[in-house]
Design a protein around this nucleic acid. Structure first.
Lengths: 342, 342
DNA sequence: CAATCGCTTGGTAGCGCTGTCAATATCGGT
DNA sequence: ACCGATATTGACAGCGCTACCAAGCGATTG
């Protein structure tokens, strides 16, 4: 038996079209490509839509058009401040646009990432933003075959899947060490936590710089797989001091560790920078207002998120960015904690 | 003319049903309510789906069923650590479940919130999580008429729209001040930034406690609409000292301000807590490992997010929580920065 | 003046799934 | 063995929108 499942009060495209005196398909076009309509009809549809308070049904649109206006974002952590800034950039770029964000947390697991990727791509996203350049072979293959703009963020490297925006963690760490060396420090320790691929590359940069200066010593390196925290910074710093009591500086792979190291210095009544220089990474807001102020490597996280989203949007709108790989660089912020070593 | 738009390679529910030897509707039921099938068919559909790598088309499902499996989340800030924890809780609760999250940032504007709310509700979300209890009258009316579980988070108060989980910011601030009073402090300053409704209630709590002790003095209060930061904490603390040089303690509405105040003390060579006690709010991770360790009011942010999501899910699954309003409480973490005043 | 072109508009059918109800199978009780 | 109740299964149409193609129409062209 045919029982119409009509929803009485709901305003559909057909209602708008009727009020505007056009066909439904013309009304549909108004929402997708207003320029295709003649000025008269455009105005009629617009006012009809406003009068009725029409809101398009995205599910119907997605089903009929076989695509969505959702941009998938895969990040490894929700807690890390670094990603908060990136996300803010992404959301800001999309503000007021038709696209929306679908966020997922890979928890630093590339297997989890692959699973989420399959889930995302099955729903035909308009675009994809994914963290880093270390995906599983399968993930990579899937992404190469899929037909939507993809931006890898947080770092740059060879062979982008599609587009890429970030900076060289290797160079950034190397520059931080170069700064310490230039300031006269010689026994420079390394503190690393979580040791995800990007942190690993910072370690490589440290190693390269310190080896070039013929100052390498494995005793100077303390790392752990444990997620980062300020408390952990203190602990790792204590470990480092136990292994190498004669260090005169420490490079921390992020600012939380640096802050933890600073507090540990205070607890031990070690003067910073006189007895111990400290350099962090990311340049979170607090680094500039601690006592002493803490040196760090500034990374452009908000811009990274914002630009990544813009690259996706522009590609979708047919204005593909001229340069698919964007290096946003970094800058070493030289502050009190790494002032010149007498 | 009828030209079928058939997508050749795609696996639809019909294909799965055919391979399993059942009708499409039975296969459909398998994915929504497996228990409704006989064991035999259930196994057949399951293996057919796996063999074909079937992934349901969510747009079609949403269109046909007139609902989505998306839970909308409205938060005022993406940067604030506090919400990072809440979000983590929400995402964790939904992990492995069918529901997904649609996140939106109100930027502390209830007008923006209302706009986003309309946008969300037009897409018929499965549920909604919204921050705070201060919505526009229109927002409130819209939410009251909509038929999906709604949880207000971050605080508790009278007249929940539907469900509510949080704690009393008034009581929490009052408890922090009570602690300082009990420790022997008498001239207790207040530092507030952003001054959103919840911060406002913390100010109310401060005022109530300090008035009860007959120690109220408007000179002790420094607030600003500027968003919070560590740097701002230092600045506000300096302002406070200028207005009331004789203060012996300061209560900061969040931990960033508290950290900024601590650094400012160090810059001024003021001993903490001997010359200046400091208490923060939220108990972020670093509070326990600073030097000196910083007292704070612990709030259960992760649990709040997690429970809010669970309340939505349980309602959706017909197991509505017995108690619609959950007070998660708080605890005053007494640390070195507010040690007993001689 | 017929042929051509580009712009705008409309008709038709179908996107993949599920709500509704009907039909059939199964079962225990008497 | 029969009956009604319950558990399973199926048929049909429709959710609201857009892809596709065709047609109308005035302007342009040789």
């Amino acid at each position: 038996m045919a029982r119409k499942r009509i929803t009485p009060g709901k305003i559909r495209l057909a209602e708008v079209a009727k009020l505007a005196g056009v066909s439904p398909i013309t009304a549909s076009r108004f929402f997708r490509n207003p320029e295709a309509l003649s000025a008269g009809k455009r105005a009629r549809v617009e006012s009809a839509a406003k009068e009725l308070g029409y809101v398009p049904n995205l599910a119907a649109r997605a089903l009929a058009s076989q695509r969505t206006e959702v941009i998938g974002v895969l990040i490894p952590s929700l807690t890390n401040n670094v990603f908060a800034d990136v996300l803010r950039g992404i959301y800001d770029a999309l503000d007021g646009r038709r696209y929306s964000i679908q966020l997922a947390n890979t928890r630093y697991s590339i297997l989890q990432e692959e699973r989420l990727l399959r889930l995302f791509l099955a729903q035909k996203p308009a675009g994809l933003i994914i963290t880093g350049i270390n995906q599983t072979a399968d993930s990579r293959r899937i992404m190469e075959t899929v037909d939507c703009p993809i931006v890898q963020i947080m770092e740059v490297g060879p062979a982008p899947i599609d587009m890429m925006i970030g900076f060289s963690h290797f160079d950034a760490a190397k520059a931080a060490i170069a700064h310490l060396l230039a300031q006269g420090y010689r026994r420079i320790g390394f503190l690393g936590a979580r040791m995800d691929p990007r942190v690993q590359r910072r370690l490589d940069g440290y190693r390269a710089a310190i080896t070039e200066a013929a100052l390498f010593d494995p005793q100077l390196i303390v790392t752990t797989a444990i997620p980062t925290s300020v408390t952990l910074g203190g602990t790792l710093f204590a470990d480092l001091l136990a292994k190498a009591p004669d260090i005169d500086a420490v490079f921390c792979v992020n600012d939380d560790l640096a802050l933890g190291a600073l507090f540990e210095c205070k607890r031990r009544h070690m003067a910073v920078p006189e007895q111990m220089a400290i350099v962090g990474f990311n340049d979170l807001e607090f680094m500039a207002s601690s006592e002493p102020t803490l040196s760090s490597v500034r990374t452009n996280r908000y811009e990274m998120g914002r630009n990544a989203a813009m690259m996706v949007i522009e590609t979708l709108e047919g204005r593909r960015p001229a340069e698919p790989v964007v290096d946003l660089g970094f800058s070493v912020m030289e502050r009190q904690s790494s002032a010149r070593h007498n």
